[in-house]
Design a protein around this nucleic acid. Sequence first.
DNA 1: CTAAATCCTTCCGGGTTGGACAAATTTTCA
DNA 2: TGAAAATTTGTCCAACCCGGAAGGATTTAG
Lengths: 223, 223
Amino acid sequence: MSAEAASAEQKPPRKQQQRSIVTQQKLLDAATKAFSENGFLGTSTRDIADRAGVHHPLITYHFRNKEALWRAAADRIFREFNISLVKAMADIPEMDPKARAEAFIHTYVQYAYRQPALHKIILQESSYSSERLDWLVENHLKPLYDLVIEPLESLQRLGVSPKGNPALLYNMIRVTAGGLMALALEVQGTTGFDLSDPDRRQELADMIISIFLSGEPAERSAA
Amino acid sequence: MSAEAASAEQKPPRKQQQRSIVTQQKLLDAATKAFSENGFLGTSTRDIADRAGVHHPLITYHFRNKEALWRAAADRIFREFNISLVKAMADIPEMDPKARAEAFIHTYVQYAYRQPALHKIILQESSYSSERLDWLVENHLKPLYDLVIEPLESLQRLGVSPKGNPALLYNMIRVTAGGLMALALEVQGTTGFDLSDPDRRQELADMIISIFLSGEPAERSAA
DNA sequence: CTAAATCCTTCCGGGTTGGACAAATTTTCA
DNA sequence: TGAAAATTTGTCCAACCCGGAAGGATTTAG
């Protein structure tokens, strides 16, 4: 809880106050929601400040400007997601790639529900090319892909995962696990399937696993 | 080519002029792109008019207001998609549900590429509940779902499609076929997979089929 | 208690918002 | 061909919102 929250530059002689951290979080939360709903261009800094219940000049104070705020918000989402992944992987032995893949999918489904912005922001930025999309790809999406693609290929060789282009396979998994969460409202309306129900999310995760990892889930099958 | 283009109410004593149809189309095209990029709130009518290369008061003239324009644009997308589906299904005998499912997937992939707004608009409107989302569900999404869900269940019973909640299965297919197109830019950047290449789309469709319809594609395997 | 960190208030110039309306232009049809 | 209808244009509006700057008030750390 010392100085680290993205605004420190050198060595601040004073430590960051608690309330400052709180408002930064509130702003990041609000920015995340707003940006994922209306995209970067469609979102105004004032809207963000309003959602956060904070005066809008605080954005300029804590983050340099709108662009930097977007970056900070996106950064946090993907960092947190990575942390969740690392945490989930920690227990599982490296020589059990199938179990690791299952953990990956469970984590993905859970995180994407808690934080649907994970996909919505990608979606928003995929509408047209922008420096933000490039930044997202370079700093978060590509690194994760590079990390995951090799184990996935080995799962294909083992006959656990379906054959075919691994990049496609990766994206299909990603989109069924996370992309569906971005559609939760519509899915609920159209099919009645309620993704806000934990059991239903478990069902989804299990189904993804059973489809993309052939056998049934290793231990936590609960449908 | 008589009166039918969404603004006719009773029996107009004069027929609609050709140029009027053209500007309506231009406006609908522009609106579709703009709304799918920036959502309803994030889009201004002036932006739409600019994209269409048309003076903005024409929006008020041809469509009543922003809301009605959104509705007309969404309506056209989903109608056209339905037409594509019907056309694709026409050839295929009703007693070959697997072939029909394959045609469904091919059509979905192709249409979602040509018109990624098909998914982007749903995505945009799924961010928060709105009358527009309700309208979308009631008038387009639910009807399609109701039409497709029963054959899909029978495919599951036949052992062609993987077991599990059919609503989930439907959405997984939908999202891998269409949702990926909304991410085309990002997929290209992250994995190098180029969805603008027809062969690649064919590869995707074939892979979806091989995963969700067990066997290999009936006749048009070309990967 | 004092100086730094944080927050609040106010202001800015300007751009944009959705929509209204009358005048100009083009097209249809008698 | 000419008059009426359909369509387009140009302009106006009143309001509101835009991102950001600046300085004074308040809270907090040390």
